[in-house]
Design a protein around this nucleic acid. Structure first.
Lengths: 102, 102
DNA sequence: GGCTGGTATCAGCCCCTGGTGATGTGACAG
DNA sequence: CTGTCACATCACCAGGGGCTGATACCAGCC
């Protein structure tokens, strides 16, 4: 398969709350308390999603005393952009390819 | 929220089989029979996923006698690319923004 | 018309995953 | 040292979505 997209990474991003977290972190590095305020979600719930994002390499943690800052890693998002862009380009290039009926 | 990503669209693409379908359709317009051969999935299962992709506007159908051709719509993929690219750009621009501890 | 092959729809099962409460841990303040 | 706050982990439950078998539908062929 020429062009492939990392399904696991997309799955991580394909959750409303996680996408909201990512969008917030794209604007500012925040700690869990801020995210609780911004999203209105329970701390436990956020911690679970942050764990998923952390294990997927989407965010980095930076301890600051009792607080834990979360920072988005733009490279990961750019990876997704690159994969989908390649996919779209392939689709454009092969727009007229059609396999004949069997 | 300045930059937002269409969660529903990402969710549709965040399935291994659907992503495989999209990747195959990016290279060639195919009908269901071809997809059954390529993916090894059951026809019913594929039909379900194709319905999801159709309702999300990711693919178009083109009847051809008894066959139904599926064609990928590159615009939709490019929409995803644009949204994630904007997100990545925002993250780059605000890489040093950090909200102070409460 | 009857039959066959290509697709779509329906109903059901089952597993996965997101949400939540209780609890553990570690760091600061007093 | 003790209490409090920030955060993580665990255990559990409920809902949704993916997979499947049965079935309906439609187009061409005999």
């Amino acid at each position: 398969m020429l062009t492939s997209v990392d399904t696991d990474l997309i799955r991580v991003l394909a959750d409303p709350l996680r996408l909201q977290i990512v969008t917030l972190l794209a604007q500012e590095t925040l700690c869990t308390t801020h995210l609780v305020e911004e999203t209105g979600a329970k701390q436990t719930n956020l911690s679970n999603h942050l764990k998923v994002l952390r294990e997927a390499g989407v965010v980095e943690t930076e301890p600051c005393g009792r607080f834990t800052y979360y920072r988005l890693r733009p490279e990961v998002i750019e990876t997704v952009v690159g994969q989908f862009a390649a996919l779209a380009e392939t689709a454009r290039a092969n727009a007229d390819s059609k396999r004949s009926c069997p």
